[in-house]
Computed example of a mutant assay.
Amino acid sequence: MHLSLINSARHIVLIVHENPDADSLGSACAFYSYLLRTHKKITLFCSSESINQNLAFLPWFDKLTNRFSDDADLLISFDCSSVERLGIKSSLNLINIDHHRSNNNFGTINLVNLNAISTTEVVYDFFVANDIKINGKMALSLYAGLMDDSKCFSAPICNAKTFLMAHELIVLGADHALCIEWMMRRRSLASVRLRGRLLKEMQLFSEGALALFEVSTHHLEQSGASLGECKRVLEEALELRTVRAALLRVEHPLGGVKISLRTDGTVDASHIMSHFGGGGHASRAGARIETDSQTLFDEMIRMITKELV
């Protein structure tokens, strides 16, 4: 990636996607640390008002804002597979850093590596290629994203480079135990309450191969859980012996629905979600549907069950 846009910018806005995960926010936090050395004005932006508090251990978490700056002259997005994921509309120059194969290269400059396990891997490679020193805060941020998108180094896509990167980041100051504690063990009371309801109301299709979860705005209000906290139950469903795909439909407080699909690789989640305006990875993908339609959702279930036969 050519550095001229960064070098010439005065105010850079780092954008993480709506309801950010550790990969998106970790990538942005690592870049925030790097840009501090350039003595430029930096804004860490997310359009979501509520951020998963399990990510509060990341450096610069307290710098997040949902107010977009009028005087910005460069945007850098992290882990956003489409321009809609930015949560804003802007004509400014944009550096698009990502690893989703559904990314359509919407940036002025696109640093998209489809072979990377996480966006933090793309950022790490950028730092290494440009001889940018990685300090402890950067190492922790990058490691959190790597651990998140690799499912704590259990995903089939993990390879020798994944573990080599993890090793290098720990040497540079990443705290593995801290990441485990915050990302894997800490849960809010609201999320535990919602998890119990979701597991109780789980529906099974295709002889138990597809698990379906539906969350209404009433469920969210009653439990106090956030949109991001709903997804954890999908991974748990895939641990069931018969389940090969888990689908979640969440009513969005602002209208429409958020769809999340997790699979064991049998079904291409990204391919399915692309039919509904979404995207992602082969085993993890999602879509935002502005108008909730039972017919549309039934078609989605039909497509998934067809692949499970």
Rank of each mutant, 00 (worst) to 15 (best):
F163R: 03
L261C: 06
S118W: 04
E168T: 13
C29K: 02
L308K: 06
L227S: 14
C46K: 02
N130H: 15
S47K: 13
D21V: 03
D71A: 11
L204V: 06
K231A: 15
E49V: 03
A245C: 09
Y124T: 07
G107I: 07
A225R: 09
C29W: 01
H271T: 06
K161H: 13
E181Q: 15
G278N: 04
N110A: 10
I15Q: 01
K40N: 04
E18K: 14
V112F: 06
S102R: 00
Y34Q: 05
M273P: 00
H11W: 10
I88F: 11
V215Y: 03
D125N: 15
F57S: 03
S216G: 05
V122G: 04
K200H: 14
R85N: 12
N110I: 06
N159R: 09
P20R: 06
E181R: 13
R187A: 10
H11C: 10
L220C: 07
F68L: 14
L94I: 12
A160D: 14
F61G: 02
I170C: 12
E251K: 12
M165G: 00
R302E: 14
S48H: 02
L212Y: 15
R262I: 08
D23K: 05
F297A: 01
L198E: 05
A155E: 08
D79L: 07
S226V: 11
A144C: 07
R37I: 00
L5Q: 04
A139K: 00
V123K: 01
M202K: 14
A209E: 13
Y124W: 14
K41D: 11
R85P: 04
L199H: 07
L212K: 09
N113S: 13
N105R: 08
H17D: 10
G286W: 08
L240M: 15
A237K: 05
Q222S: 14
I272S: 01
S81G: 15
L75F: 09
H11Y: 13
S90N: 11
M183A: 04
I88E: 09
